[in-house]
Every structure is written in structure tokens, then in C-alpha cells.
């Protein structure tokens, strides 16, 4: 069951990555800081696709990062919804869905981060080190 969700998540990651790069292209001449944020969030999607995981205190940074992704995802979802509300084009619906996907995947990643910090270490020797993901 989990595998189905995970598969769906990866499809979502790929979809979101596409949209983010697309939006970065579009917004490049208008608002450079926003483009940087898009690229950052796109990297997050790529990170998930490549299976990169963080451990130790970096997990806290990752949670913060995912929260930013959640915000940007909400913004993209609103952007897509606004357009869809007026023009009813499937393209705008896709952008809206992609925003929702970014929000959901970032929530998923936050959950994984929290779980990884909550797991107790197997041996006492590890207690001295940073906790690691199971």
C-alpha cells in the first residue's frame, strides 16, 4: 500500500519539478528572487526523485526548507486556480494541481523528517552521535 503512495509521490515530484522549471523560465525576466525560490523548490523535488536523505541536525534545516516549499506550493496553487477560475484551460488546472502536489510532497517530507528524529537509536554508542534515519 505504501508503495502505491510512494509511487504516486514520485510521479507528483516529477510533475512538480517540471512545472517549477517551467515557471522559473517564465518568471525569469520579471522577478529574479522569485525565480531563485522556484529553483530551490525544484531542487527539493529533484532531491526526492534521486532519493537524497538528510540526517542529524540537517533534518531541522530540511523541515524549514520544506516549509518554504509548502508556501511556494500554496502560491503556485493559487496562481493556477486564479487563472483556471477565468479561462478554464487544462494548462492552468495542471499548474494548480502541481502547486497542490508541492504542498502535499512537502508535508510528506516533513513527516518523514519528524519520524527520522523520533526513531530511537539501536545502540548506546549511537546515542552520542546524531540520530540516524532507520
Amino acid at each position: 500500500m505504501m508503495n502505491i503512495f510512494r509511487t504516486l509521490k514520485y510521479i507528483g515530484n516529477a510533475f512538480a519539478f517540471t512545472t517549477l522549471v517551467y515557471l522559473a523560465f517564465t518568471f525569469y525576466p520579471v522577478n529574479v528572487p522569485l525565480v531563485i525560490l522556484f529553483i530551490l523548490v525544484a531542487y527539493d523535488q529533484l532531491e526526492d526523485l534521486l532519493g537524497v536523505k538528510v540526517s542529524g541536525l540537517l533534518v531541522y534545516a530540511d523541515i524549514f526548507y520544506e516549509l518554504i516549499c509548502f508556501g511556494i506550493g500554496a502560491m503556485i496553487a493559487m496562481f493556477g486556480y486564479t487563472y483556471y477560475n477565468y479561462f478554464y484551460a487544462p494548462f492552468h488546472l495542471a499548474i494548480m494541481l502541481s502547486g497542490i502536489t508541492i504542498m502535499l510532497t512537502s508535508l510528506w517530507d516533513i513527516r518523514e523528517d519528524i519520524v527520522s528524529r523520533s526513531v530511537k537509536p539501536k545502540s548506546k554508542s549511537l546515542e552520542k552521535c546524531f540520530w540516524v534515519r532507520e
Binding site: I11, A14, T18, Y22, L49
Partner: peptide, 27 residues
């Protein structure tokens, strides 16, 4: 290492490259 992810990823990147170019002219 499921080939499905790779396929989806590849397809989406190709879609991106083909569809984003006309949009850039809106600049």
C-alpha cells in the same frame, strides 16, 4: 530503481523543453 520513475521523469523533462520555449517569447 523503478523504471517507471525514470520514464515519468524523462517524459516530463521532454515536455518541459518542448513547451517552455514558446512561453519565453512572452517575456
Amino acid at each position: 530503481e523503478n523504471p517507471l520513475y525514470k520514464l515519468v521523469f524523462l517524459l516530463t523533462v521532454l515536455t518541459l523543453l518542448s513547451s517552455s520555449l514558446p512561453l519565453v517569447t512572452r517575456v
